[in-house]
Amino acid sequence: MVGVLVAAGVFLLLRPGLLRVVLGFVLLGHAVNVVLLAAGGLGRRTAALEEVGSDTADPLPQAFVLTAIVITFGITIHLLGLLRRDAGGPASGADPTDGDDHTRSGDDDTGSGGDGTGGAGGPGTTGRRR
């Protein structure tokens, strides 16, 4: 299960498009959660709510998972925020592929003038895709 999730997640990560990256991380997050629960041992599967028996699941990994889910959620939202902002920017109209800001990548500052290191002269294949 982990393997499938990870494979799919990684594949998405390595493809262009920020949305794919977001979804890829969501999947990876799921995978880690499964690993965490597995780390508690999957042999016991009763919720740790009322009576504690021999089949009661380890509660600690569940607490870990809860924390992890929430953090992943937070960062996912942040990524979406980035996606949203960049999409609303000058290159809007397309799912912002990573090449979009290639023309900007070499620069560092507010309009400090020229950009000699890499951006403007770089390969323009990914420039503006519409």
Binding site: M1, N33, R44, R45, A47, L49, A57, V65, L66, I69
Partner: peptide, 10 residues
Amino acid sequence: WFLTVGAPDV
């Protein structure tokens, strides 16, 4: 699946 492994909160 989480429900089945005894993690209802999760």
